[in-house]
Structure formats: C-alpha cells, structure tokens
Design a protein around this nucleic acid. Structure first.
Lengths: 301, 301
DNA sequence: CAGCAGCTATCACAAATCGTGATAGTCTGG
DNA sequence: CCAGACTATCACGATTTGTGATAGCTGCTG
C-alpha cells in the first residue's frame, strides 16, 4: 500500500528533475527519497523512472500515472483546506448546480431575483450534467442541485420534486431513420447513436448507448448539433429540441411504444454536508414556487 | 500525516455504522480500527465521531470531511485502475474537450466530418471551461483541447494557435453603467460583477473579479443571461454576445483603454500523456485547416 | 432488573515502515 | 582527469501499525 507521502515525493521528483533536488526541496535525506520511490514502485509493481543516466527520466508508465498522482495530492489539499475552514467560520457563498439542459432564460430570471434579496452573498451557478451536479451536491461542492431524477434514494441529500421533462428521440430529416413511419429499437441500433455522457462517463438511465457505434458529448446542446450534422440519432430534452423541430432542422422520431417521448422527473437536491442558513432556505423556498411542465418553468398557484 | 488507509477506515465506519462492523468488513482487528480513527483525529486535530453512545455518530466536522475523504479514495481507485490498464492494452476512444464559448454550429460541423473518416472510433466531445479543458488534457482525460491561451508555456502538452477571440464588457441597457460615455475601471467596481469561474474555481486572466461583490457562473452563456437580468456587468466572448447586442438585450460598454474589447488567443492543446495514433493525427490536421477570426470559424487558404 | 450481545477504548507486544547519516559507485561537464 | 552531482545500499534508531487480550459501557430481551 502506497502512501500520500510517496506520491508527494514522486511528484516532487518530477517537478524538480532529480531525487536530490526533491530531497532538498522537501528538506529530507536523499536516501529517503530514493527509498520512497523504490517502495512506491514495489507497491504498484511498476517502474516509474529510468535511472540509466545521472538524472532520472520518467518511464511511459510514470508519465501515465503522474497526472493522477497530482490529482490525488490536489484532493488532499482540498481535504486539508476543509480541515482548516472547519476551524474557522462561515462561508459567504452559495453554489447552485444545474443540469445544462434545464437552464434557460426563465430559470435564470427566477434565480436572479436573489441578487436584490441577498446583495452581499456570492452566488455561483455551475452548469453541468445531472451526474456531475449530483456528485457536486453529494460532495458538498454545491448546496443545491437541479437535476433529472432516476428514482434511486438519495443519500446525504434532501430532495423535492420540481416537475417533469420530456425526452425525444431525434434525427436529421435526411437520416434514413426519418423515412420510417414507425421506428423500432432494432432500427435505431443499425445507426450510430449520439449519447449524452457526463464527465464521470455516466450515461442517463433512459438514453444510454444501445447502438454499437457512438459519439459522446457532455451537453445535450452539442448532441443536437451532432444530430443536425447527421452524425447519428440522439435522445434529447424537448425543452431544447423544440425550436429545432419547429424549424425543421431535426425531427422527432416515432419510436415504437414511445410516441410521446420519455417523461422523467426533475428535482432539486439540497446538500446536507454544507451548513444551511437563511440564504439556502430562501433559495429552496423560491424554487418550490416554480414547476417545470415539459417545456417551460411556470409559477405554481 | 494521515494515510489513505486511515481515510478508507473512516469511510468504511461511516458506511457500516460502527467500528466493529468496519473491522469485520475490512478483515481487521476492531482495536486497530479504533486506533486508526483516533490517529486520524489526532493528525487533523478534529473529532470525527461522537462516541457517547454505543455506536459512533458523525460530528458536524466528520460530516463535512467525509465527502472529500470519499473523493480521495475515489481518486485512489482511479490511480489503481490506471496502474492496471497500463499492464493491458489500447484504447479505442478519442476525447476532444472544448471551451464552452468556442463551440458553435460551424465547429461541430467541422468535427462531424470525422464520423465518416473514422466510423469505428468512439469520439467524445466534452464541453467545459478553458481551465477544465486544459486540466483534462494535462491529466490525459482528453487528447485534444480547444481553449483560450494565456501565454504561459504549456507543460506536457503540444500546442498550436487556431486564431483569436474578442471579449467585450457588457451590461443591461437599463444598468446605470449603460449611461456612461466612457466607463472607467472605478465605475465598474461600483457594481456587482458576473464572473466566469471554472469548476476548479479559476477565473480567466482577463475577466477576473475586480468588483467587491460578484456572482459566478461556469459558462459564458449563463453570464450573458445574468447580465440580461441586470444582475451585473460581465466580460464575455463577442462570438456569443453579438446576437444579444444586435437585438438590444445587452450592450457593449465603452471601457476606457479597451474600446474594442480584449483580444485573446485561441489554441489547440494536444496531450502527450495519451498515446497518439492516426485518428489523433487526423484531428489535429483537420483543425489546422481552420482559423477562428473574432466571430467565426473560417477555412484557411 | 439481570443477563447477554455488541459496542469502543486501552494495553502490551511484535512486526513493519520510515527516516537519517554514512558510504560506494556512476555520470557529466569543464 | 577531476570535481561535483547524481542514485543506491546499508545499518540503525525512531515511529507507526496491527493483533489479541482485556475492561468498561450501552441497549435489548426475558
């Protein structure tokens, strides 16, 4: 089992260019640095450096592992910073993360009203895919997330429903699928699929890859553009696709058993791992005044 | 200094509900689990669990640190997986990461031509902010990145210029800044700024926060929407803002010494930590045939 | 209420790991 | 060729880790 210290030494050697320089920078004995690298290599059963010259050079394996080692150390810094901030006080920021296909003018207008109500608070809007949003809320990077919901019980988060969104299967009008009066799943599988995939490589539970060939994108907007270029077919939100369907740039396919598309729940996640205060309360109350009804955010009665 | 093993034990206790259950799951002595948690608490000088009852309950501090501990272990899994995949073979995928404000129909049309040329290859388009894109290329998560470039030497990446993009300072027509014939920096500082900030909390080198109050977003599109709602002023790409300026929804401010906005380089980063093959070569050659000229992607002569 | 099962904490001890300083061998540039 | 800088190995002491035994506490059940 390797340690964070070993990773730190590994990265420092790469940054300084030699074991000795790393030792000097870290104020350690050079022999300890040499041993730590050797121990790390033993632990992972991989050679990280060529030592045939006077200064070590990264192996291909070392090159491949360095970014992840750096990433782990970066996360460690996050941990340490969090430890420090726990010893101090509040935070003056509120992070709202929203699925990229749920953001439109109306929603931002709704949220903008918070500016007058809380003039000192720094808000951050993070636009990302549903899985990334959920992960951000789970990890405490965002206090609020607006996402598509898959029915699984949410852990460490509060949840309330905001409405429903419809997803349609679309293709270019010049695509051969566009000539079918009924589109079976077998028809779809004959053609390349444009799949939504989050930064964590997760696919939505109702639009995952079923074709053997695929292109991926992490925004539904990009998917629509790929469909317009006739790269393939895709499942996308009606909220985004409507204008392109009306202009004839794409068309909604009559998929067997899904003539009206796929309806999915839109909800709001509220972090429990971030301290809650009056601002968070106000935001959740504001959101609960609105509902997403297929194509539009509307105010509840 | 805490270890990854201590973090793993911490997370396992939280998941199993007690020190004993964690010990059973991890096939360790309970006393070792107790010691490891105590040692972790000593290392970070924070109490993670209340032990006043029969089973431990997370403290507020424990709750705050758990997500980051999980994240670190997740990264460790990534490291371990990478170690394993180094022992195995190739990959059949190519990831292109693009700054969100540089994506438009034309660029996607350009890239879509790759579908016919490489029908078997899985492409992934990742839309993110410049810093995130750069980080992805640096960490080997993407082979190609299209970003704004700040003039710093790129480490572990190849680079070539694609063109230039202009950034404008905009505000709502009803904003008080819109009445000034010349806008000084001091004027801007009197009002809330809408700042672009990446997922890594990085701000662009020419549009960082100068006002004491700010709202943040990780897409320029969202910034424009905030400006339209008169939340504040923002520095955004002309490529995105032009249509809203022409329709009168926002206006470009005549900032002193920056009448024509800020011109910045757009470039293509190519990862060196991912193996290169014919597909990567074809993509880079395709991109080198095009140039971004302020408002539009055009084909070079 | 008493007994029992399950919980955490502490102790003693052995094993494992870590870090230092000394030393030897190799490489590189002047 | 020589001096300086490099890495590797060794011996050793210090520190950490893990086990098993033990003691004390909590919560449930009859």
């Amino acid at each position: 089992m390797y340690s964070l210290e070993q990773l730190k030494i590994f990265v420092t050697v790469c940054e300084t260019g030699s074991f000795s320089a790393a030792a000097r920078q870290l104020k350690r004995a050079q022999s300890g640095v040499s041993q730590s690298i050797a121990n790390l290599e033993i632990a992972i059963d991989k050679t990280l450096f060529n030592r045939d010259k006077n200064t070590p050079t990264l192996t291909e394996q070392g090159i491949a592992l360095l970014p992840i080692a750096k990433s782990m150390l970066h996360q460690q810094q996050n941990f340490d910073q969090k430890v420090q901030s726990l010893a101090q006080g509040e935070e003056h920021e509120l992070v709202i993360a929203i699925d990229e296909s749920l953001v439109n003018q109306v929603l931002i207008k709704i949220l903008s009203s918070l500016a007058e109500q809380f003039p000192i608070t720094h808000f951050e809007l993070v636009i990302a895919s549903t899985f990334d949003v959920e992960n951000m809320v789970k990890e405490g990077e965002a206090q609020i997330g607006i996402v598509y919901v898959d029915g699984e019980l949410k852990v460490d988060m509060d949840f309330f429903t905001l409405g429903h969104a419809r997803f349609l299967t679309i293709a270019s009008p010049t695509h051969s699928l566009a000539n079918l009066s009924i589109v079976e799943e077998a028809d779809l599988k004959l053609h390349r699929q444009c799949v939504h995939r989050s930064n964590q490589k997760k696919e939505l539970w109702f639009s995952y890859k079923i074709s053997p060939t695929a292109w991926y994108a992490n925004t539904h907007k990009a998917l629509i553009e790929l469909v317009k270029q006739n790269v393939g077919w895709a499942v996308v939100p009606e909220l985004l696709a409507t204008q392109y369907i009306e202009s004839g740039e794409v068309m909604s396919l009559p998929v067997a058993h899904e003539y009206d598309g796929w309806l999915t729940v839109v909800g709001c996640l509220v972090s429990r791992s971030r301290s809650s205060g009056p601002v968070l309360l106000a935001v959740t109350q504001l959101l609960q005044q609105y509902s997403l009804a297929e194509k539009q955010w509307i105010q509840r009665a």
